[in-house]
Design a protein around this nucleic acid. Structure first.
Lengths: 198, 198
DNA sequence: TCGTTAATGCAAATGATTTTGCTTTAATTA
DNA sequence: TAATTAAAGCAAAATCATTTGCATTAACGA
């Protein structure tokens, strides 16, 4: 649960009055967007819809945000906390599995999946790769202790990419065995390379 | 270049008249959506915009497609000619590599990448998976001759997903060795399973 | 080629979204 | 607590999207 002033701090457009009513309006709008993203999907949300669900006047939304994409990106900016501690048991396989499981759990929440799809729709040109933090984390995981010869690219290709693919296109195929299976695939791939170099 | 009747066959909503004018209207709409996706981005396209650019009456779009997400998904889904012949040399590895190379070449064109991102933003609900044809093709490739024990899921996870991930988030990492490398990974993964079962 | 009628075009009507001017509420500061 | 004024509410107007009924075009089978 975020406090109202924390909610206010997450917005791209600032108010001068950050307490009481304003914060309550923001919280209602955010809750409404999250509900609606789950119920009707990002593409079918309208501003009047959000206003009605939030019990707020549409004008209040129009005056604060330029347009709907801005609103949704603002509100759905629920991120994996970049300061959280990563698994570090000394066992790379365990760490990767634990980390990938966090990723899966995160993106099984419809709001976060919707955000990723939203990120996808504006990716490619700018440097706004909304997964760049994940690659950074992979590098940390590989760096702490024995990387067993894996590169971040391999982990991104064979663990992160399949998860992302499922989140975006096949969310119903994302279950709590996905992460373990993919890490197992990664490790068998690696062993194969060891064998073939014998 | 698709023929008009091939374009018609790709739509989710069918016409009884598939030639001449209808096909021309479809082709114009498709071209308009492609241009606009590049120019203004998925988020700011409207149906009247598409109609004007296509030189077509908005009514023609409204009557055929339920709404904009459906239209975009339709166009994004069928950009690769679904009737093209797939590689069939008898050598699965060669076939997969050739097919994956087609995929890479296709998505290295900016229009197609933009369409995939557009598809991503409307994915996740219903069965509107704009990559479902790719999975179908994988099943065909595995079905013709020796599948060497691969499942479509494995190919989707370790060949298609990494390509899609790069297309959407890292297009600059998509080069003409990507496909071959990923198929090589897939095969080494498979060999690993053989080894580990010894 | 002709006749049928599906598909498109056109225009008016409807419905929804967005903007605007003004009023009210209440957060903040003194 | 009172004064100030930012932010929210309200309602009417303007804009834009969508639907609808009918006229026109042309695809396709006879």
């Amino acid at each position: 649960m975020l406090w109202y002033n924390q909610i206010m701090e997450t917005l791209s457009v600032k108010n001068k009055r950050t307490g009481g009513r304003s914060a309550h309006v923001m919280a209602s709008i955010r809750a409404a967007v999250e509900e609606l993203i789950k119920e009707v999907g990002r593409e079918r949300i309208t501003i009047p819809m959000v206003a009605e669900r939030a019990g707020v006047n549409p004008t209040s939304i129009y005056r604060r945000w330029e347009d709907l994409p801005t609103l949704i990106n603002d509100i759905a900016t629920y991120r994996l906390d970049p300061t959280r501690t990563l698994p570090n048991t000394g066992d790379l396989r365990k760490d990767l599995t634990g980390w990938a499981n966090e990723l899966v759990a995160h993106y099984r929440k419809p709001v976060n999946a919707a955000l990723l799809r939203g990120g996808a729709s504006v990716a490619g040109e700018t440097d706004s790769d909304c997964l760049r933090n994940r690659r950074g984390e992979v590098e940390v995981l590989l760096g702490q202790g024995n990387s067993e010869g894996f590169t971040a690219e391999q982990v991104m290709d064979h663990v992160v990419a399949p998860i992302v693919y499922r989140v975006i296109f096949h969310p119903w195929d994302l279950d709590d065995r996905t992460a373990e299976k993919l890490v197992a695939d990664l490790f068998s791939l690696h062993r194969a390379e060891l064998f073939s170099s014998l």
